[in-house]
C-alpha cells in the first residue's frame, strides 16, 4: 500500500466519463446515491477486485450498466451492440481523426432501436 503519493484522479479518459455519467444521472434523479452505492458495492465485493485497485473503474462501469438495466433504461444487448458498433467505428476511422459512430461500416443495423 503506497503512502500518499498524488496520483492522477483518472488513469484513462473513459474512467472520467464513466464517473461523470453517474454524477449526472444522480443529479437528474435517475437513481438515489444509496442505490448507486449498493450497486457499486455489489461489484467491488462480487468480482474479486484486484488488491491494487487498478480495476476500480471497471467495477464502476459494470455497476452503472447493471443499474441502468435494473432501472429499465437500457438492456445488456443494447449496450453490447452499441459498444461493438463503436469499436467498428473506431477501426474504420483514419488515425488522427475523431471517432464518430457514423463511421461504423455496419451502421444501419447498429442504430436500429
Amino acid at each position: 500500500m503506497p503512502p500518499g503519493v498524488e496520483e492522477p484522479v483518472f488513469a484513462e479518459p473513459w474512467q472520467a466519463q464513466a464517473f461523470a455519467m453517474v454524477v449526472a444521472l444522480h443529479r437528474r434523479g435517475a437513481f438515489t446515491w444509496t442505490e448507486w452505492a449498493d450497486a457499486l458495492s455489489a461489484e467491488v465485493h462480487g468480482r474479486g477486485a484486484a488488491p491494487d485497485g487498478h480495476d476500480y473503474y471497471e467495477h464502476w462501469l459494470h455497476a452503472l450498466e447493471a443499474l441502468l438495466v435494473a432501472k429499465n433504461v437500457s438492456t445488456g444487448a443494447e449496450i453490447d451492440d452499441l459498444a461493438a458498433a463503436w469499436e467498428r467505428a473506431a477501426r474504420a476511422t483514419p488515425h488522427g481523426q475523431a471517432i464518430v459512430l457514423e463511421n461504423d461500416p455496419q451502421r444501419e443495423g447498429a442504430i436500429a432501436t
Binding site: 484513462e12 479518459p13 462501469l61 441502468l68 443494447e78 449496450i79 476511422t93 488515425h95 471517432i99
Partner: peptide, 30 residues
Amino acid sequence: HDNELDPFAARVRALETILTRKGLIDPAAI
C-alpha cells in the same frame, strides 16, 4: 495505424450514446 477503442472505452461510449439519445445526459455537462 487505425484507431482502436479498448472494450471499456467502447462501452462507455455506448452508454453515453444511449443516455444522450434518451435525453438523460448532456455531453457538455459530462
